[in-house]
Nucleic acid binder design. Structure first.
Length: 416
RNA sequence: GUGAGCGUAGUUCAGUUGGUUAGAACAUCAGAUUGUGGCUCUGAGGGUCGGGGGUUCGAAUCCCCUCGCUCACCCCA
């Protein structure tokens, strides 16, 4: 065993691929129901896009990006997240001049250099949605409903939506000042990580998992009490609407999220069936991002959701993802002439969309039967010396073992 | 980047206080008299015991180093 896959990557093998197909088809179905259009952007972008769009102080940009110089010396980065590339495409293609509102989704792989653990990979897959052009609170709600519908159709109902508002930038910086003022007195009792965060990003101290940090922040000032009237009213509308629609929400003052571009609403879908990385997906508003990337001011909201994590939770729930595709008929040939005829008949059936298989290893009758049984085909069509002579094959039903003679040219209709 | 746990056939695991050719189950393949699957029975193939070094007459077993995997921190999907 000389070659190994790179750390944090995975092979998706044939026995599991139907699960991926299933989830992907659910996503295509649900996004169509919500009238979202797919956008596909390059696997890599110029590094500067993420520095500017995601924020150079974030962990994603600061230490998790796959960045390299290409042969011309340009700095290239494998996309670590979905929103910045979509915004870039949105601006570069002047989409706003086609229409004042865009509802976009993506389904693609992401790359982050991290230590792998349960539900966390260096290459993972996300689907995400973005609504651009409207600051209506209904857009926040619509995205949450979109994700919820996808989860539900994948057999996942045991999750909750943590939700919070981090307000407008000026409200947030005023709040951070108050928070730091409160934490100043407890600075020595905070964890090392949080002491560092106190300088770099004090808001992040709120979502520390350290029990000591949490007991200190339990009684810290809450951002929801420091929002302006407009932000507060907006947040209340989102909460009311979600409650009215029976979404299982939980207001969580600790939910600040790690990306710099968020404003107002932030949310996260969490499941107890995941390990320590308990988020199925997350997102929020980013009303300032487009302007920050050089466009004219345009409101936006988006979320991303991990496909691998959907799969983990769905499987823990015993969800079956439908059935793996399998052939309807297995052709068994007992000599070379039969084999030749089988190939001809198979070609005809496949043209009529009937999935067929046959033995390609020149195996014995018994071995071919075993193979057919293992594949789980419904029928076996047996061709031997007599059958070739008469133009009639033996069609055997594998579930009840009944067997009837079917002429070569009647085979397609008896399988229909 | 930090910490902990674990590495024996394809898979899940046994392997006695260090002692001969390292085992089982499942999986794979092949047989069980004429051209018929599942169940059963029989047999076969498959292992640098993660790798390297050391201790010893002798190491899967003890020691050191190293690599890999897993989980957790960090962070996030």
């Amino acid at each position: 065993m000389n070659f190994r896959k790179p750390k944090g990557t995975k092979d998706i093998l044939p026995k599991d691929i139907h699960k991926w197909h299933y989830v992907e088809s659910v996503i295509r179905e649900v996004t169509a129901l919500f009238n979202f259009s797919e956008v596909r952007t390059p696997t890599f972008e110029y590094t500067e896009l993420f520095n500017r769009g995601v924020g150079s102080e974030t962990d994603i940009v600061g230490k998790e990006m796959y960045t390299f110089l290409d042969k011309s010396g340009d700095s290239i980065t494998l996309r670590p997240e979905g929103t910045a590339p979509v915004m870039r495409a949105f601006l570069e293609n002047s989409m706003l001049s086609d229409s004042p509102l865009h509802k976009l989704y993506y389904f693609t792989n992401m790359f982050r250099y991290e230590r792998p653990q349960a539900g966390r990979y260096r290459e993972h897959t996300q689907f995400g949605g973005e609504i651009l052009g409207s600051d209506s609170f209904y857009t926040d709600v619509e995205l949450i409903l979109l994700a919820k519908e996808v989860y539900n159709r994948c057999g996942i109902s045991n999750f909750k939506v943590k939700i919070n508002s981090i307000g407008k930038p000026d409200e947030r910086s005023a709040y951070i000042a108050k928070l730091k003022d409160y934490l100043k007195d407890n600075l020595n009792d905070l964890s090392e990580d949080s002491k560092r965060r106190f300088e770099t990003n004090a808001l992040r101290i709120l979502d520390s998992k350290n029990p000591g940090d949490r007991s200190i922040t339990d009684s810290a000032p809450k951002i929801l009490d420091h929002l302006g009237a407009e932000s507060k009213a907006r947040f209340d509308k989102v909460i009311n609407e979600l409650t009215k629609l029976s979404v299982n929400i939980e207001v969580d003052f600790r939910l600040v999220r790690g990306l710099d571009y968020y404003t107002d609403t932030t949310f996260e879908f969490v499941s107890e069936d995941l390990g320590s990385q308990d988020a199925l997906g997350g997102g929020g508003r980013y009303d300032g991002l487009i302007a920050q990337l050089g466009g004219k001011s345009c409101p936006g909201v988006g979320f991303g959701s991990g496909i691998e994590r959907i799969l983990i939770v769905a499987e823990k729930n015993g969800f079956t993802f439908g059935e793996a595709a399998k052939p309807l008929v297995y052709f068994i040939s007992l000599n070379d002439a039969a084999r030749d005829k089988a190939f001809e008949l198979i070609a005809q059936l496949r043209r009529k969309n009937i999935p067929c298989e046959t033995d390609l290893l020149n195996r014995s009758f018994k071995a071919q039967m075993r193979d057919a049984n293992k594949l789980g085909v419904k029928y076996v069509y047996i061709l031997g010396e007599d059958e070739i002579k008469k133009g009639i094959g033996q069609l055997k039903n594998m579930s009840d073992s009944s067997q009837t003679e079917v002429e070569f040219n009647k085979l397609a209709e008896s399988l229909a």
